[in-house]
């Protein structure tokens, strides 16, 4: 499967209620050691209930400038959340279904180290 098949898909809970759209896929470079980097695994999906457009990361990093853009982005993506991959039950074309009792997690990213 390619990433763009997942992005923008509708997210549903186990009862078939639409929760929003898949905005991004969270990855972690933490799998089995490989030649150069460790294996990169999918750890979750980000869901936004208000917009399916990209967010430039404002709601995920605690950035606050330029103020107007930050404010607009936060408002567009109010109520966005992260769902761990373990809580994903099914991925189909344009549709992602979460398990019953899935948990909505804070989408905030840990602060990335600045590149030297």
């Amino acid at each position: 499967m390619i990433l763009s098949d997942l992005l923008g898909s509708d997210a549903f809970d186990a009862d078939g209620r639409r929760l929003g759209a898949i905005l991004d896929v969270r990855l972690e470079i933490s799998g089995a050691p490989a030649q150069l980097l460790a294996e990169t695994v999918v750890t979750g999906v980000l869901v936004s209930s208000h917009s399916r457009f990209s967010t430039w990361g404002y709601e995920r990093r605690g950035e606050d400038g330029p103020f107007l853009i930050a404010w607009l982005q936060r408002w567009l993506h109010r109520g966005s959340f992260l769902v761990a991959w373990d809580d994903v039950e099914l991925v189909d074309v344009g549709r992602v279904v979460f398990r019953a009792g899935y948990e909505q997690l804070d989408p905030m990213l840990p602060r990335a180290p600045r590149e030297a």
């Binding site: 896929v25 990855l27 990361g57 948990e103 840990p110």
Partner: peptide
């Protein structure tokens, strides 16, 4: 905590500590 995430107002922090560098595919790679 045990009765699912639906209807929750303030999402909880991800309880799993990241074991490596965390990236968002669209934000950090595309």
């Amino acid at each position: 905590d045990h009765d699912g995430g639906a209807g929750r107002r303030m999402p909880r922090r991800d309880p799993r500590a990241p074991r490596g560098r965390v990236l968002d595919a669209h934000l950090h790679l595309l």
